[in-house]
Computed example of a mutant assay.
Amino acid sequence: MRVEIWSDIACPWCYIGKARFEKGLAAFAHRDEVEVVHRSFELDPNRPKGDTGPVLEMLARKYGRTLDEARAMEAHVASNAHSEGLGYRTEGRDHGNTFDIHRLLHLAKDRGRQNELLDLAYRANFAEERSVFDDETLVTLAVEAGLDETEVRAVLADAGAYAEAVRADEREAAELGANGVPFFVLDRRYGVSGGQPAEVFTQALEQAWQGRVPQPAGAPAGEEAAACDVDGGAC
């Protein structure tokens, strides 16, 4: 069975949702027969490369809140991250264009290191004092994930490298009706949106495995999904 996960490195609920999905997968009896594929989704695709700024200011501007209210929003997300054993900095993080990160994740997929690079990028963005919006940081992360430095630099230098792969993922997300992330598609029969609790993912995996009639793509009835939307990039 294949599970496809559309996500963006700028989305904190993708970071949290990945951890929750992995816990849900660990509790699934057929976990060794599940292939997980991470797919690209840009929350702010029109933002120019190199245009970065503080997350708190972006949140305040996007939602019409004060900086103190934005800090409270970040504290809520941090609490959820910490409950999953994840590090999360509420101050000093940047927000920017993620297209190059997605291109490198496709390279990493071809080299069998996609999950490793994704974990490193999430940790750098949300838990560490490293911005993921400059090429040198991306090179460092990719090498840490096990990729060849020369190949990584060549991909970053060629704006067309893996660009169509990223765009194809995004078109497919639109066709599936995804307008936010994380978005999980199980064996193309069942969809779950948002950073759901681990037990929701286990239930969804069991339902997809048994081949039951699928519910419409989205969160199971009665569950509120925490997700990032497409009109600015954060939650």
Score class of each variant (00 low, 15 high):
144 E>W: 06
130 R>W: 05
76 H>E: 15
95 H>A: 02
214 P>Y: 00
125 N>Y: 15
129 E>Y: 08
171 R>A: 14
212 R>T: 12
121 A>H: 01
88 Y>F: 15
129 E>P: 00
54 P>K: 04
163 A>C: 04
198 A>S: 15
80 N>I: 07
146 G>M: 10
10 A>L: 07
84 E>Q: 15
161 A>D: 08
56 L>D: 04
160 G>R: 12
92 G>R: 03
84 E>K: 07
224 E>C: 04
178 A>Y: 13
231 D>Y: 01
8 D>I: 07
193 S>D: 02
163 A>H: 11
5 I>C: 08
206 E>T: 14
35 E>G: 13
188 R>W: 08
213 V>H: 03
147 L>C: 11
39 R>V: 08
15 Y>E: 01
38 H>L: 09
1 M>R: 13
129 E>D: 15
16 I>P: 02
35 E>L: 15
134 D>Q: 11
74 E>M: 09
183 F>E: 05
197 P>W: 09
54 P>T: 00
117 L>Q: 09
14 C>W: 01
92 G>N: 06
85 G>N: 12
169 D>H: 08
203 Q>L: 03
35 E>F: 12
73 M>G: 11
53 G>Y: 00
45 P>E: 10
161 A>T: 06
207 Q>L: 13
84 E>R: 10
51 D>L: 12
234 A>K: 00
152 V>M: 09
101 I>V: 14
115 N>H: 13
85 G>V: 12
3 V>S: 08
158 D>W: 13
67 L>Y: 03
80 N>P: 00
39 R>P: 06
29 A>T: 14
146 G>D: 11
80 N>F: 14
175 E>R: 15
121 A>V: 14
189 R>S: 14
121 A>G: 02
167 R>C: 01
117 L>G: 03
30 H>E: 14
189 R>K: 13
223 E>R: 04
64 G>Q: 05
61 R>D: 11
162 Y>F: 15
106 H>E: 05
52 T>R: 00
235 C>S: 12
